[in-house]
Every structure is written in structure tokens, then in C-alpha cells.
Design a protein around this nucleic acid. Structure first.
Length: 255
DNA sequence: ATGGTCGGGAACCGA
């Protein structure tokens, strides 16, 4: 089974590119981030026409996540537990076959210091708690999304330009490492330890043609899922399309 | 060069 993550930066602007990629890549399920629309404004009919079921956790204007699947899937939860006052739509879980797929859009956290960075760290603490619960399951678990954390300097083309960014802060990296240390495998980095594995290139300053990228979209696998991974990849060519997202799809194949 | 470019939604905010 092929599972993917794709921050599409607006479903309305990106629907043609998304449909192109779905037809080409043929995932069984994909976690989408930054759909930037309310749940009832998601283009479910157009996707259904193309053969895709959708679970949507939307929000007007910002954020918003969804899980698309070839077969109908059972929603496990929407929203990250731990703060009932959190109104941002950033988290959804579903069973895809016997695999629990969690789709997440971790807060950016800029600027810092300030309330946005505090929210990022508190959200990561809540994610750490949920990940620990999921790790207790017998079934394979896949945590896929835009983590908005650049785990090491090797995951950036120009790390020294990013020192003040929330994605690079020691606190952000430590929180990501604490989750990994529960026993998760960072699929892409485990498979390609020394490669350039960027998943995001800023729209500004010609970042894409200069390959000034970051690796911030990650797929974490529980031990049961990691044992069954047969392939993984990054569809970086999608970044070169007209009206591309600033992120590209990341995927794993689980036998 | 203290810039640059997108998306959402209709003036700025978020990234």
C-alpha cells in the first residue's frame, strides 16, 4: 500500500495539479495539508469523479487537513487531543486497511519569541502524547505531514540563513527528536541517509531553480510499519510545474 | 537589494 503526504497550499488553486499527481503517483491514500477551505467547501465532488474518497477537517482561509483514499476509510479522530480550546484544523486520523494513518500540519511558529512559537511547542507536546498512545497499538501506524521542523542542518540548503527561524530552533528540533525516540522511523532519512531530500522550496527569491530547499515534510513509521516498508520517495519534479505548491509529495510503500 | 512570491479573499495575514 502506498501512503503519501502533500501540503498543497490551497485546494482551490491546486486542484488541477493535485489531480495530475494523483493519476501519476497512484497512492492508496494521501494526507493533505493546507487545504485552506471550510469542510463543506472542499471539492469532494470533483475528487469523487476522479475516484477519490475524502475525509476533510477544514477551516476558513487557513490550515485545514484531509485524507484522500481510493477505498472508503474509517475516520479514527479529527483534531489533536489535549486542548479543547484549539480551533485550528491541523490533525486527522483514519484506518487505511490495517494501517492507522495520521495526517498532521504542525504550526509554523514564526515569528519568535511570541505566542505563535509557544503554540508550536505546546502543539508538539500534545503530538508527542498522541504519538505515545499510538505507539501502544499493535497495528502499524504512519505519522505523515508537514511537520514544519527541519530536523538537522543537513536538511537545509542554506542552514545559516535559517538560524532565527522557528523551523530550526533547538526547542523545535528537540521536540521532534523526543517523538522519534519513542521508536518511530523517519522513513526518508532512514532510506537515504546522505541525500538531498528537500520537500519545500520557498516561492521567494528563486529558491526552486537555485535548489534552496528544506526537508520539513516527514513520514514517521511505527516499528510494525517500518518492518513492512519496501520503498519511499519524494516527488520533487512536481515543484517545477506551473502554479505548483511550494511543497512536494512524500510517500512510502508498506507491503 | 532589509528585498523577494504565493493563496485566500477582498485589505492584509500567513507562510
Amino acid at each position: 500500500m502506498k501512503l503519501a503526504s502533500y501540503n498543497i497550499n490551497g485546494i482551490s488553486a491546486r486542484l488541477p495539479r493535485l489531480l495530475d499527481w494523483l493519476a501519476e503517483a497512484e497512492p492508496d491514500a494521501v494526507a493533505l495539508q493546507e487545504i485552506k477551505c471550510e469542510t463543506d467547501r472542499f471539492p469532494a465532488a470533483a475528487l469523487k469523479e476522479a475516484g477519490w474518497h475524502a475525509l476533510v477537517h477544514g477551516q476558513k482561509g487557513f490550515n485545514g487537513v484531509a485524507i484522500l483514499s481510493r477505498q472508503p476509510v474509517a475516520e479514527v479522530r479529527r483534531g489533536l487531543p489535549g486542548d479543547d480550546s484549539d480551533e485550528q484544523s491541523r490533525y486527522i486520523e483514519a484506518m487505511v486497511g490495517d494501517v492507522l494513518l495520521a495526517g498532521l500540519y504542525l504550526p509554523n511558529g514564526n515569528p519568535l519569541p511570541g505566542p505563535k512559537f509557544d503554540y508550536k511547542l505546546s502543539w508538539m507536546a500534545r503530538l508527542e502524547a498522541r504519538a505515545a498512545e499510538l505507539m501502544e497499538r499493535d497495528t502499524p501506524v504512519v505519522l505523515a505531514g508537514d511537520w514544519n521542523v527541519c530536523p538537522t542542518d543537513h536538511d537545509a540548503a542554506r542552514p545559516d540563513m535559517m538560524r532565527g527561524d522557528a523551523l530550526f530552533q533547538p526547542e523545535s528540533r528537540a521536540a521532534f527528536r523526543r517523538i522519534l525516540s519513542q521508536g518511530w522511523t523517519d522513513a526518508i532519512r532512514a532510506a537515504r541517509p546522505y541525500a538531498d531530500c528537500y520537500t519545500y522550496w520557498d516561492y521567494q527569491a528563486g529558491a526552486w531553480p537555485k535548489n534552496w530547499g528544506l526537508r520539513i515534510d516527514h513520514i514517521l513509521l511505527s516499528p510494525a510499519a517500518a518492518d513492512r516498508m519496501t520503498d519511499c520517495g519524494i516527488d520533487r519534479e512536481t515543484r517545477g510545474a506551473e502554479r505548483a505548491s511550494d511543497h512536494v509529495p512524500v510517500w512510502v510503500v508498506i507491503s
